[in-house]
Nucleic acid binder design. Structure first.
Lengths: 356, 356
DNA sequence: GCCGCTGCGGAGAGCGCTCTCACTCTGTTA
DNA sequence: TAACAGAGTGAGAGCGCTCTCCGCAGCGGC
């Protein structure tokens, strides 16, 4: 009992693996017919079909992916790529990492779940530098994956274009920094920012401020501009802003800076929840009550939104549905003879909690 | 320029893909020799080797994974399985998900990075129910992956044993609930809890309490017992505890309950940082100052530890190194003829911040 | 009654690779 | 000089699958 049974059963499992040939023999038909039944191509007489199905069940046959993909040029695999994960490659003391923002976990989780029923397997890859980008590109170019789902985190990332260059289907999360012929899903970021502005103004805020994301990232810019636009329509000609980098720490720093520049602030729109959390801490440390002295609206509606005190009022980005749509678009593109470049834009909603 | 260049370049890429045969022709040798050079098996004359390498460079040859794995029975792929992710399968309003605890992201991130230089690709899979467990098992059984890296989140999970049953190499994160012949990495959880107890006692706490994890999970039990053991050695015969489930919300609930049972509490050990965050909120809502009235020690040293106010004093679990070791153990096991079942235990350290 | 058509099954090639086996060619030894 | 290692190379089988091509029925139309 204490001896590991792994080795013998390992060989067992391997030896036992039935092939098409075995199934054909049991069913008394040819290999080709079994293949046809399994793949549902062409018509097979119902009687024969049944016999084959029984033989499959009896032998416990499962197609060999490698053999199949050798001839079909399809792998049943897609690359899920996170670009700009920028974590310490040594992994030594890498506390932060990509996944410290729950956003990426939400995307990846939803992707995996959507792909699963289609029997398409996600290979997770990070691209941080030229070398790892190269790995991703050649992985795709040489047909190791049927397509790619890419989440890129910075504006001048060359990877989206490089992937398009491989000719493989690809779907991006969020519009790329520069226009390229690739499909993407995105959020109507400006609309979300308008919701935030309207909410802040409606609750009586008179002096607004914004903590934005990096301004070369389209979504960050859209959020800032959307907010300013809505504020302007209500008479607020100018709204000061400080750019963060979507991290908790940058939210703290930006809030401190903003407070310095505009001490009379009573309403702040923050471009994501993680920065909003940092901002709230800084406000509280400066003796400002949230929302009584300063109201805060975040963005994302990530898990951290309910982990702050007060709980965050925030613009909900339906990340899970967006990821789902991404996966579906990619699957469609893989199946299509003539893949079409298309986009799908989601509408944000305001989730009102306690911070504004 | 606005027409997508994808289609033609796609066919290009596919058509161009050079095979061993092509390289052999260019080098003026046989296919077998090229294969030998590429795989570094057996001796090849230096001169020939050079010619072949040049031909490889000239043609841009990259081996076809499918063809190779068809004959070698190796896929260059490992399954990274998270079991008990228990998220809403519809994905509809799934805000929480597995990745809301940064722990999983840290594990997965480190795994991916460790595997990468070995050219082994991680396929991410979630197992939530009998059906999805079955998918994982047959994926492995039929040789679609060379091994599995499993993070299981609950004690009576049947998956570890099922995976062992496939005969494939597997390495677990944390000792399984029931003894099975599988390798694992783990933390000396009791030692970590002892560090927490000693720290709390040393700073003068007189009335202790514990928020533990689910008590059927070995690591949670070890932490509780380690803490009680160390407390007992310092004269604290009994320490009250309430079990949470490692989530933020359960931390809030457990703290409220604990406060109810022992209002005089002045030191609490919480089994992970996420619950500690919830506990701090509840304490503050009850007018207790942290750490002045109640000191808190968390566990994990996850990113949330620096996102709480006060910042968390916590027991550091070197998750990244543990994941790295996991990956290495699996790689070794895959390469070994006779895979050995082994374990690797890491030592925790105390990270002192502001909450205790 | 013959032709052509359609509908279904089988034979067999071939995807790109690895690996065994046999062969050649050198250099060494009796 | 013959015999023999031993090292390096090539030929070819075969991994498990798909898919094209071909054959063989059965059937309606002239």
């Amino acid at each position: 009992m204490s001896k590991p049974p792994s080795k013998p059963s390992g060989s067992d499992a391997r030896r036992a693996a039935p092939t098409l040939e075995d199934v054909a023999k049991v069913a008394g038909v040819s290999r080709a017919t079994v293949s046809r039944v399994i793949n549902g191509k062409r018509k097979v007489a119902p009687a024969v079909q049944e016999v084959v199905l029984e033989a499959v069940a009896e032998t416990g046959y499962v197609p060999n992916r490698a053999a199949r993909s050798l001839v079909t040029r399809r792998t049943g695999t897609v690359a899920v790529v996170i670009s700009g994960a920028d974590a310490d490659p040594s992994g030594e003391l890498d506390l932060s990492g990509v996944f410290s923002d729950p956003f990426f976990g939400r995307v990846v989780g939803s992707l995996v779940r959507t792909l699963r029923p289609h029997d398409v397997h996600p290979v997770l890859m990070f691209a941080d530098d030229e070398q790892t980008r190269g790995q991703v590109v050649s992985y795709l170019r040489f047909g190791n994956a049927d397509g790619a789902l890419l989440v890129s985190t910075y504006a001048d990332d060359p990877l989206p274009e490089q992937i398009v260059g491989t000719g493989r289907p690809v779907v991006l999360f969020a519009r790329p920094g520069h226009p390229i012929p690739a499909s993407y899903v995105d959020l109507a970021n400006a609309d979300g920012a308008r919701l935030a502005a309207t909410h802040l103004l409606d609750r009586g805020c008179r002096t607004l401020g914004v903590i934005s994301g990096p301004l070369d990232v389209p979504s960050a810019r859209d959020r800032l501009e959307g907010f300013r636009d809505a504020a302007a329509r209500r008479g607020h000609a100018f709204v000061p802003s400080v750019a963060g980098s979507f991290t908790f720490e940058s939210g703290e720093a930006a809030m401190a800076e903003l407070l310095d520049a505009a001490p009379g602030l009573d309403g702040v729109f923050v471009s994501n929840d993680l920065m909003a959390q940092g901002a709230i801490h800084v406000l509280q440390e400066h003796g400002r009550r949230v929302p009584d002295d300063v109201a805060i609206v975040g963005f994302d509606d990530s898990p951290v939104a309910v982990q702050t005190r007060p709980r965050l009022t925030t613009v909900r980005q339906p990340v899970e549905q967006m990821a789902q749509e991404m996966a579906r678009m990619l699957l469609d593109q893989i199946d299509a003879d003539e893949p079409a470049v298309r986009s799908s834009i989601f509408e944000p909603t305001l989730v009102v909690r306690d911070s504004a």
